[in-house]
């Protein structure tokens, strides 16, 4: 193991996969790498394989979809995932559906990746969480790494997958350091990871919230035993690991940044109440983002996403209740 920052892990995944398979290429704006994920790749692989594009999300995402149909393995970078609205047809109506509509004849080995989240005070058009939008479209896989190790392993798996994968990075994690194995490895899609074992309550958290949940678990360690489950991929979702955890703890709290309304938390609660109702000793809860466009001003933004205090308070309430 070595200590690496999150962006570096992603950069290594791209580098290794491009070296491994010459069908892999990157297409997107600013091939020079605005957030550092693609840094150095243009120089290393040249403009054929790291192709800077005009500001034309529909065109270059469409290009990626068509290139995947023709057997290449594009990695499409969306500068801010909020901008998928400009290529939503290419993602939701084309990439997700063409294989099925062809009766299974086409393959769609493509990755759409980019960063999202908040914490940088960029207001409502640069602070959204798109994972729920994508998870609602049958035919798309949705990946959300929280840990440095998984960032690399999951991105490598996403690139090797023959289906369209939306790879959602939280920019709040980019600078985070974490351990990463040396040498070649991949992390399978559709397998959750228990990031911390516990016996009193299950906290299912995504991306940056995994770190919030872990901090709370550590803080409460002497009083409450918190189990933190990181689904890592939302589609396909490893329901087995979540259900096993709830069977053990009897309590479920889901934490995510995306607006709480009709979100991932609601879906996990549905699955657990349908399949493990008898195991529950408290009503399941969801902490999600506010049902609001993300405001700019810091004190406003800060109340729109869950923080560690919210998680701690809710965990305590659920233990008392």
């Amino acid at each position: 193991m070595r200590e690496v920052v999150f962006v570096r892990a992603l950069n290594e995944a791209l580098t290794e996969e491009m070296q491994r398979d010459e069908n892999v290429f990157i297409v997107g704006e600013e091939g020079r790498g605005v957030f550092g994920v693609t840094r150095g790749l243009l120089k290393k692989f040249g403009p054929k394989r790291t192709r800077p594009t005009p500001i034309s999300e529909a065109a270059f995402t469409g290009l990626g979809v068509g290139a995947a149909m023709a057997g290449l393995r594009p990695v499409i970078e969306i500068m801010y995932l909020d901008f998928v609205t400009c290529c939503w047809d290419q993602i939701a109506n084309q990439a997700a559906k063409l294989r099925y509509m062809s009766g299974g004849q086409l393959r769609m080995p493509l990755v759409i990746r980019g960063q999202q989240g908040n914490l940088t005070r960029e207001a409502a058009q640069h602070s959204q969480q798109i994972e729920g939008w994508c998870a609602q479209i049958p035919g798309l896989k949705v990946v959300m790494p929280a840990m440095v190790e998984d960032a690399k392993g999951l991105l490598k798996s996403a690139i090797r997958d023959d289906n369209p994968v939306v790879f959602v990075e939280h920019r709040g994690l980019y600078g985070k350091k974490g351990p990463m194995p040396r040498g070649e490895y991949t992390t399978p899609l559709g397998v959750a990871k228990v990031q911390r074992e516990g016996t009193d309550i299950t906290v299912v958290a995504t991306a940056v919230n995994v770190h919030r949940a872990l901090a709370v678990a550590e803080k409460l360690a002497d009083e409450i035993s918190v189990e933190v489950v990181d689904p890592r991929t939302l589609v396909p979702l490893d329901t087995e690991t979540i259900l096993a955890s709830v069977h053990k703890t009897g309590r479920l709290l889901v934490v995510h940044d995306a607006p709480v309304r009709l979100g991932f938390g609601a879906e996990v609660v549905r699955i657990v109440t349908e399949e493990a109702f008898d195991a529950l000793v408290a009503a399941p809860r969801v902490l999600g983002g506010a049902n609001l466009p993300m405001p700019f001003s810091a004190p406003l933004e800060d109340v729109c996403i869950p923080n560690e205090d919210d998680v701690e308070r809710t965990v305590r309430q659920m233990m008392e209740g």
């Binding site: 065109a59 469409g62 068509g66 149909m69 023709a70 290449l72 047809d89 086409l106």
Partner: peptide, 28 residues
């Protein structure tokens, strides 16, 4: 669809094929 004949599909979205067509051309 018939990929073996290069037929990469019709489209229910008017204009939907126009950006997709860049892809096979790029691949070539």
């Amino acid at each position: 669809f018939d990929p073996d004949k290069g037929l990469m599909g019709g489209n229910g979205i008017v204009g939907g094929g126009t950006p997709l067509a860049l892809g096979p051309a790029f691949a070539a």
